[in-house]
Design a protein around this nucleic acid. Structure first.
Lengths: 201, 201
DNA sequence: CAGTAGTGTCAGTCTTTACTGACATTACCG
DNA sequence: CGGTAATGTCAGTAAAGACTGACACTACTG
């Protein structure tokens, strides 16, 4: 009478593995959607991250129940972002894919790409607006409406400066190696004041 | 013959102000959309940020050419995020709204809210998956499939730990006052290695 | 305390984005 | 250098998300 063996309807380990994967994958899909990245990309990335071996597109499509067209498109994007890579195997037509395993490395990659694709264009745009505002304020500085213009110009300028500083912070973050990040955390902690109301747990 | 007055079809300063505002507002709307926040919220926030005086909902709706229903909903959300606030004026039914003027303050607020609303639930979820995976790996550790389960469990655990660390970094960032941020930037710069390929300009 | 300006809500509609699946293309195989 | 398995493309469709506007509610005002 071993109590272990008598456990109530114990699922087999394969189903359990499947469930662990699913929960992780869906969670990751949710985060992606939340932050403006499409859900399929997030799910595929999560699956490849968990998979012990590289997977083919067909395997991905079957596992996640999505069309191969969707997989093809999403995989192209993930490759462009640099968070997954191709694995060719000799004497085989099929291409396999695997995800970067170190979370820091791919997180770093995502931030860098996002900065390049999204932050930078927006920042350029903002600088144009700033320059336009400055020029306009100069031209109209004598009229009554010009005063308002000057106020707005100052705000735009202040804001732009702030965005630039933030971009610098991102750069500082990106410049750290995954070894440095630990040191950085410890250093950042020194700037945390006594109050504990932001504590995690 | 003053050359100033002869300038080619110089726009009046009110139109110019309008254009500066528009360009800033649309830019901000774009960023918002890009990062998974709806465009109306971003545009309204930008308008209130630039406005020299608080505005009513009707003024916002007219200025941005959107329905008052949309304004009402977006303003509710902006209030919940804490980036704008009501301004009551005595003997007046109408409620006016104004935006926080310090970029650091509202950026700080956005990060804090986003952490609370989005990062935290996701992190809790992840911890559940982690615990489930750990338990499952323990139960099945003797089977062949159990080995795969153990590998997956380790990945989930590693990943969770990383997300926790990142949440800590956010906390460190949030704990800084807008005075401290400057010091922080300078400190962060020390971690930037020699290579300049990430330089901004 | 009736009248009404101002605000809130939400069902329906419009807009945007994501996904599917049929067809086109590629590249390895014998 | 055909044959074909695998991948790529993209028009059409489905799903998600945002916006409008009619109606409901609220609270000031006279």
């Amino acid at each position: 009478m071993p109590p272990e063996a008598a456990m109530t309807a114990k699922k087999n380990s394969q189903d359990t593995l499947h469930e662990v994967e699913d929960r992780f994958i869906e969670n990751w899909g949710d985060i992606s959607a939340l932050w403006g990245v499409n859900r399929s990309m997030g799910r595929i990335h999560a699956l490849l991250f968990l998979a012990p071996d590289p997977l083919s597109m067909e395997e991905v499509a079957t596992r996640l129940q999505i069309s191969h067209g969707n997989v093809s498109t999403s995989v192209r994007d993930l490759l462009a972002w640099g968070v997954i890579k191709r694995v060719h195997q000799s004497g085989e037509r099929k291409i396999l894919y695997e995800a970067e395993q170190d979370p820091w490395t791919w997180f770093h990659t995502c931030i860098r790409e996002r900065r390049r694709r999204e932050v930078e264009p927006v920042r350029e745009n903002l600088h144009e607006v700033k320059d336009f505002a400055r020029q306009a304020a100069k031209e109209h500085k004598d009229s009554a409406e010009g005063r308002k213009l000057a106020i707005t110009q100052a705000k735009v300028e202040n804001f732009t400066k702030y965005v630039d500083e933030f971009a610098d912070l991102i750069d500082a973050f990106l410049s750290m190696g995954s070894g440095t990040i630990g040191k950085f955390f410890r250093l950042a902690a020194k700037f945390v004041p006594k109050r504990k109301d932001l504590a995690r747990k």
